[in-house]
Design a protein around this nucleic acid. Sequence first.
DNA 1: ACGATTTGACCACG
DNA 2: CGTGGTCAAATCGT
Length: 305
Amino acid sequence: MESVVIDGNGERVVTELSQIMELVRQLEGYLGGSQTQEEECRRLASQISSLTERSITLITCLDSGGRKRSAASPLSDASDAPFKPTKKRRSANKVKNQVRVSAGGGGGDIPADDGHSWRKYGQKEILGAKYPRAYYRCTHRHSQGCAATKQVQRADEDPTLFDIVYLDDHTCVQNGAAAVAPAAEHNPNAHNLLQSMSSNLTVKTEGAQGWVAAAAAPFCLPSTPASACLQAAAAAELSPFSAPSTTSENWGVSPATSDSNQHAAASSFPPFEVVAGGDLQFEFGEVVSALADVPDDFDISSFFA
DNA sequence: ACGATTTGACCACG
DNA sequence: CGTGGTCAAATCGT
């Protein structure tokens, strides 16, 4: 289906992610070391986080910058049908974020939780796909009018992988946002986080054949308690899918606390173009933010010209 | 009893 | 007209 398509900036994202992987490698080398090494760990984690966030911004900008439904704003276009609550699809202008995640933990059955509560409302066989696609919407759809939905589909080639397409942002409020961040604060957890990262951080390009790994994690560790980390990270509201649309000046700024999107609807367009062909898709899932709780004291400028 | 999931049907969109 | 997104009744789980 439609995927996020990036041109020149795609290269840049790949570059950044390569740097991220390098940092992770370094970080791993420091694990279990002395105090000073722990400090180095934190520093590297900080860098990883920032780089990742930037990459996410690149992607989400592109993705959500296109057009967002002005949920209740009459001030814009008349061309857009005054959507009545029919049961039909209004796929036209929805914010899409496609992500590929590996099945959570040993169960292998379901992709790791992303910190939001979803309710399944349908499942369908998709032509040409080996596995059916499941449809979920936010549990708080009625209580809070949250329009977020997602589609989960098992990858044809690798049943342990799931392609998840998120449609629309969450407008609901999930509490406990601050409660979990500490997971990234202490070194003993770093290993888990790294494991999460190594098993989930993947940048892929989509060619004629579908998903092709362009840069995979250089190290793989068995049996990952990933879901806990994932949940922690996502609950901390650092999910890549809630990043506000932004201009380039905002890079590196952490959107730590807000999930009230929707009012950003009128903001600007992404600083890059969407073209056809040479797709580059992003999919590091929730994990990328697992190392997110960082001081903002690090200088990202040393990484980019 | 209530909320979540399953499943067949409906129907918009391409 | 086929495909895929959603609805809603039936079913299941707690």
